[in-house]
Design a protein around this nucleic acid. Structure first.
Length: 631
RNA sequence: GCCCACGUAGCUCAGUCGGUGGAGCACUUCCUUGGUAAGGAAGAGGUCACCGGUUCGAUUCCGGUCGUGGGCUCCA
């Protein structure tokens, strides 16, 4: 019995098997499409054998983990193809990503699209050969020796950070340093595609050598790849830059300058609706509106530390020998307001809210439509409170963010960032602030990731990330605890003991920047805004010129009631007008023909294509009002 | 800022292996008054991003600048 071991299969059935049985054999009985196994929590290749009693589960290629393994293996196959075609290439890293994989290479010339085609073809050959992946465990010294012979200097450098025993993977003639696991053989990669090349830096540091990154994606089946490519196509259709132009919302003009948004009437309407919404919601929650100037004296930016830490991103100007900085943040004026009188502990918390327009000199390569711009308006607030009020204030903000995101139907991810190495303040302040953030997240039962050491130098923070059409995440809401500014500006309040105390400052935005939020919003709704947000809620259209006098009356009635309606009384066929409104994604089309004139009604048609029964204008107004969110 | 790619009419895109350019949509005018996703005809519209170089001649080739896109880094 010594050479028998007891294993537990995924369904809980226990069985005795010979010691040293290959996982592949077991996998074949269970799931022919398994790409790896998990034993006692460890992911292993199917080529490995079971040496002792264990609970085994198999990783299906159709699971998230399985797909990751497949893609990681695909990156090795790509690296093999590149090495075969361009032997002097040096390897660096090649992981799987959310949507595929990449591999970074160091090469003395750049890869062209023709190269990509060649690489793809070579990859197909490797896949067709169905080369097995072999794992080989070696000592660090052996690995370094091997990579030195191959001239793989990056691998050697990376090895320095690794433990004494490492694993090498080989398929065909290609060897790479890798932890694994990998798929059993290259033939498992049933569908793949190389997507693009881009530049990157060794270890992500701009001071290091520029590498070339080739992106690709892989799937266990051809249909899945096609579905993915189709999804990319669909995502492109809802790109806010495309929709922004088609729906005539905004433009970015080369003449005006990069990263500076020009709102057209409809975009300005949308923003104005959002701003009205924001004002109402903030006032309901005890915020006071304030407005600060666009420029403030340079001395003040020196006092705040912005000149020291943030000047690269600031714009400056000089008037009559006085130097000014254009504000990249709104906090300064808010602090001056606080300081304008003596504050009692009874006054706190004080919540200053400003739709504050700021300018930041973002690097040119970072600009992206509305999502990354140089001039933007934040729904910014600074809350000054006593330390004992911090917890409640944070809870209230989280609730605020949660409420607002629900109204727009956004899914979001929360991230808590803790104390970085370079930071100021007492440990107990940091602990209290971080705990307050955690408490609030837990109280609202919101899941969150922790980014250790990613907080601001002055305090911990929570970031809220929304996804764009291409699944890229953009930071919108953020809640930051700040001990530094009250200190630097010597903000105080008089406590019940008659002594001066230091308030804590919370810096927070809910939508973040109007520009970015609008960009994400456009993609979220694919341009088909709900009625309450739609810049144009309805288009009133006549069937023939005969109905114009009646339709004018209807138009007046609607705009008097605040319905955002446009006239389309042109000499065009109804179908043409409907199509145009449809393409503009306007929620309602209101048809007026002879019948409606006679009955004194209008016939609404929804964007969905549904035609409603003709109704009096008042009924339609009620219908529109019923579609506003109730808060 | 860095790497790569790109820049032709308002938009989407053809095109010229160097001899000053096209389509569809949009726009203007005329005909048409038509009931739920494109009625017809005619017309107008371009310093081929900008600046230099090569050339008899550059939108085309080369260099630079600006801008855009995909990434990297950074951020709301």
């Amino acid at each position: 019995m010594e050479d028998q071991i007891l294993i537990t299969m995924p369904d809980g059935v226990k069985k005795l098997i010979p010691k040293g049985t290959k996982l592949k054999e077991l996998a074949d009985q269970w799931d022919k499409e398994a790409v790896a196994a998990q034993i006692n929590g460890m992911l292993l290749d199917l080529s490995r054998s079971v040496e002792k009693d264990a609970a085994i589960s198999f990783i299906s290629v159709h699971s998230k983990k399985g797909l990751e393994i497949l893609r990681h293996s695909a990156s090795h196959v790509m690296a093999q193809a590149v090495k075969e075609l361009f032997p002097t290439v040096k390897l660096t890293f090649g992981p799987s990503t959310e949507n595929g994989f990449y591999y970074d290479f160091d090469y003395d010339r750049t890869f062209t699209t023709q190269d990509l085609e060649m690489i793809e073809k070579r990859m197909s050959d490797i896949v067709a050969k169905d080369e097995p992946f072999f794992r080989n465990e070696v000592t660090k010294e052996e690995a370094i020796k091997e990579f030195r012979e191959m001239g793989e200097t990056y691998k050697m450098e990376h090895l320095e950070d690794l433990p004494d025993h490492v694993s090498l993977y080989r398929q065909g003639t290609f060897i790479d340093l890798c932890e694994g696991p990998h798929i059993p053989s290259t033939g498992r990669i049933k569908a793949f595609r190389l997507l693009n090349v881009s530049g990157t830096y060794w270890r992500g540091d701009a001071r290091n050598r520029v590498l070339q990154r080739i992106y690709g994606t892989a799937f266990p089946a051809q249909e899945a790849l096609e579905e993915f490519l189709h999804m990319l196509e669909e995502a492109r259709k809802r790109d806010h830059r495309k929709l922004g132009r088609e729906l005539d919302l905004f433009s970015l003009s080369e003449e005006a300058g990069p990263g500076l948004v020009i709102y057209h009437p409809k975009g300005a309407m949308l923003r104005s609706i959002l701003e009205d919404f924001e004002k109402k919601e903030h006032l309901k929650r005890g915020y006071q509106m304030v407005i600060g100037p666009q420029l403030l004296r340079l001395d003040l930016w020196k006092q705040s530390g912005h000149f020291e830490n943030y000047r690269d991103k600031m714009y400056f100007t000089k008037v009559e020998d006085a130097e000014y900085g254009i504000k990249p943040m709104n906090c300064l004026a808010h602090m001056l307001i606080y300081k304008s009188q003596i504050r009692s502990y009874r006054d706190l918390p004080i919540r200053y809210f400003e739709l504050g327009t700021v300018y930041r000199h973002e690097k040119s390569g970072e600009l992206h439509g509305l999502l990354r711009v140089r001039g933007f308006t934040q729904d910014d607030a600074h809350i000054l409170c006593r330390p004992d009020q911090l917890n409640d204030e944070i809870c209230a903000i989280i609730e605020f963010v949660d409420d607002v995101m629900k109204i727009f139907g956004f899914e979001f991810e929360m991230e808590l960032s803790t104390r970085p190495e370079k930071s100021i303040g007492a440990d107990e302040d940091w602990d209290r602030a971080t705990q307050a953030l955690v408490n609030a997240l837990q109280a609202k039962n919101l899941p969150y990731d922790v980014n250790e050491g990613e907080g601001a130098f002055y305090g911990p923070k929570i970031d809220v990330k929304l996804k764009d059409a291409l699944n890229r995440r953009w930071q919108c809401a953020t809640i930051q605890v700040d001990f530094a500014m009250p200190e630097r500006f010597d903000l105080t309040y008089v406590g019940s003991d008659g002594e001066r105390h230091r308030p804590v400052m919370l810096h927070r935005v809910v939508l973040g920047a109007m520009e970015r939020f609008i960009g994400v919003l456009i993609e979220h709704y694919a341009g088909a805004f709900p009625v309450w947000l739609a810049p144009t809620q309805a288009v009133l259209m006549t069937v023939t010129d005969r109905q114009i006098p009646y339709a004018e009356g209807v138009y007046q009635q609607l705009i008097q009631k605040g319905v955002r309606v446009e006239k389309d009384f042109r000499n065009e066929k109804l179908g043409f007008k409907i199509r145009e409104a449809q393409v503009q994604k306007i929620p309602y089309m209101l048809v007026v023909g002879d019948r409606e004139v006679k009955e004194e009604t209008i016939s609404p048609r929804k964007r969905s294509g549904e035609t409603l029964k003709s109704m009096p204008v008042e009924d339609f107004i009620k219908q529109v009002e019923s579609e506003y969110p109730t808060l």
